[in-house]
Amino acid sequence: MSRPSQGLTIGDLADRTGLAVSAIRFYETKGLVAPVRNHGGHRRYDRSDIRKLSFVMIAQELGFSLARIAALLKTLPDGRPPTRADWSRMSKEFRTEIDDRIAGLERLSDTLDGCIGCGCLSLDRCGLHNPADTARTLGPGPRYLMADSTTSGKG
């Protein structure tokens, strides 16, 4: 095991996070972690990278893109481990996005439970029914399911 003053080796980081070494290198190419090189040219990671990579794994599981995760991590300080206040500040924006996703999933769940398996016998109430493609004015995709029913004309 590496001494804390020298940082963590990539193997240490893999052991602590459960990630494969190749995954850590991939995340490095995406700017999610930035190791320093020692005199021998070996990567050394800060202990705070354990938390950063743990955050990456959780955020990916929630469906966030690596680009979005990287943008959030870039708000953390360079040159020192993030503090509780740093994580709290970053998480406020992330929490808003999670709440928006939860609301969207609830809306989808409420809409689809009467639709799946119905055989479209109730087209006048179907969130997918789009006669004459009128929903195109609202944007691409299943707009009646994605948009607020008061603005979609369905309800």
Rank of each mutant, 00 (worst) to 15 (best):
D15S: 15
L62Q: 08
F64W: 12
G119S: 04
K52E: 00
G104E: 13
F26L: 15
G141N: 08
G104F: 10
R89W: 10
S5G: 09
N38K: 14
L13F: 02
R125C: 00
P35N: 01
G7N: 09
G153R: 13
L73C: 02
T83R: 11
A103T: 08
S88Y: 10
I50N: 04
L123S: 04
L128G: 04
G31C: 08
M1H: 10
D46F: 03
A14G: 09
C126K: 01
M57K: 14
D49E: 01
F26T: 15
L145Y: 07
T29K: 12
F64H: 09
H39Y: 11
T17K: 12
A103R: 11
A85D: 10
P77M: 14
R136Y: 01
C115F: 04
R136S: 08
T137E: 08
D124H: 12
T17D: 10
L72D: 02
R80Q: 10
V33A: 00
I58T: 15
G79E: 10
T29S: 12
P142K: 11
M1Y: 09
R80C: 03
G7T: 05
K154Q: 13
P81Y: 13
M1G: 12
S109E: 10
D148M: 04
E28H: 14
Y27E: 01
L19K: 01
G119L: 05
L8H: 13
D46W: 10
H42S: 09
L76K: 05
L19N: 05
I116Q: 02
S122T: 04
D86F: 05
L121T: 05
A14M: 00
R125I: 00
Q60E: 15
I50D: 07
H42K: 11
A20G: 09
S5F: 11
D110Y: 12
T9W: 04
P82R: 05
G18M: 09
H129E: 00
L32K: 11
T9L: 06
G40F: 02
E28C: 08
T111Q: 02
L73K: 02
C120D: 07
D78T: 14
T29P: 02
D148P: 01
L32S: 04
R44K: 15
T111N: 08
L108Y: 06
K92W: 06
Y144F: 15
P140T: 12
W87S: 03
H42L: 08
T83W: 15
F26C: 13
F26R: 15
G117S: 03
R44T: 11
F64G: 01
T96L: 06
I58F: 14
F94M: 10
G127S: 09
T150V: 13
Y27M: 05
N38Q: 13
G40A: 14
V56A: 00
M90H: 02
V21K: 07
H42W: 03
L123C: 00
T96D: 09
G40I: 01
S91W: 13
K74G: 04
D124Y: 03
K154C: 10
L128S: 03
L128M: 12
P35W: 10
G7Q: 08
L112Y: 13
V56Y: 05
R51I: 07
L76C: 03
L128T: 07
L72K: 07
D113N: 13
I10Y: 02
H39D: 14
L32F: 11
T137V: 04
S22V: 05
S91Y: 15
D86P: 07
M146K: 14
R95C: 11
A147N: 09
G155H: 14
